[in-house]
């Protein structure tokens, strides 16, 4: 077995919560505050893992399965993501379709668990989540399809590891469009402003947070950790596209990759600090805009 293939996944599992930290620190900087410690998400996870869980009598096994399937989905997805020129743990042709649907499987169960509670807030959150996810999915697929054609490779590892800096010179516009579409998908999938507000306490405006209101303890830890993994996975794709650094030394490549991840989180935090959240009615327009960017990229690479 090639141990190097385990590195991207191990790094993701270990460092994913840090991205949330970087985003929060960026937002704190813009707000003139110091912000929580960088390791705060880990403290939170440790705290939640030490807690018991309360289950409503109206819920069934579906409610308990939601966080577990969600975590399994996020870990499964991570196994397909290469990083810093290293291939992923698992790579096979058209694995990006598996990537999209394993991600959706986790969401499907989170939605079922939310509906299982019978709460009005969770129902509204679930309905919004499904609606927006359905609009984000074509953008993701079109973007990945454009990349596959561009790199003449069918697996995520092949696409992202095989990317050479020279490609930006040749196919810059198409790549830029793909990155733009994926950035919007990243914001939508990870419940960030302008689509969702991860910090809000207002149940009526919640999307992702609304769905997990009734989870606590270990279940909530699973949910938060899988959210971190999902953010890591999508960020890794974008960073691999934007910074295809191939310095030849794994240490330098890894450093560039990690710096890219931090930079992307800063960008997400900056977006969150500089603009208000969109009215829910306007979110579909943003997601359709991402679809249009990705479709345009596809047209450019097919030309």
């Amino acid at each position: 077995m090639n141990w190097a293939a385990c590195v991207p996944m191990a790094a993701g599992l270990a460092a994913a919560p840090l991205l949330t930290s970087v985003i929060n620190r960026t937002k704190a900087f813009f707000a003139g505050r110091q912000g929580p410690p960088l390791l705060q998400p880990y403290y939170d996870l440790a705290k939640l893992l030490g807690k018991g869980a309360v289950y409503s009598r109206t819920t069934t096994w579906v409610f308990r399965a939601g966080p577990v399937v969600g975590l399994a989905g996020a870990v499964g997805v991570l196994a397909l993501i290469p990083a810093a020129g290293l291939p992923a743990l698992a790579a096979f042709p058209v694995d990006w379709i598996v990537f999209a649907y394993v991600l959706s499987l986790g969401r499907f169960f989170t939605v079922l668990a939310a509906l299982d509670t019978g709460s009005a807030f969770e129902g509204m959150g679930a309905s919004r989540e499904v609606f927006f996810a359905a609009l984000a999915e074509p953008a993701l697929f079109l973007a990945l399809a454009a990349l596959a054609i561009l790199s003449r490779n069918l697996s995520l590892s092949g696409i992202l590891s095989g990317l050479q800096p020279g490609l930006w010179m040749e196919k810059g516009p198409a790549l830029a469009l793909v990155v733009g579409a994926l950035f919007v998908v990243l914001l939508a999938e990870n419940a960030r402003i302008p689509v969702d507000d991860p910090n809000t306490h207002l149940e009526l405006t919640m999307i992702h947070e609304g769905m997990v209101l009734d989870h606590c303890g270990v279940d909530l830890a699973f949910i938060q950790y899988s959210a971190g993994l999902k953010l890591w996975a999508l960020s890794a794709i974008i960073v691999s596209l934007v910074l295809p650094v191939r310095a030849g030394s794994p240490a330098l490549d890894s450093a560039a990759f990690l710096a890219g991840m931090a930079g992307l989180s800063v960008a997400v935090g900056t977006v969150e600090s500089c603009m208000a959240r969109l009215r829910l009615l306007r979110v579909p327009a943003l997601l359709l805009g991402a679809c249009a960017l990705a479709a345009l990229a596809l047209v450019l690479v097919l030309r």
Partner: peptide
């Protein structure tokens, strides 16, 4: 009002 629309700078200041 800024906080409710997720506009952080004004909410904090």
């Amino acid at each position: 009002l800024g906080g409710d629309v997720g506009f952080l700078p004004t909410a904090s200041f």
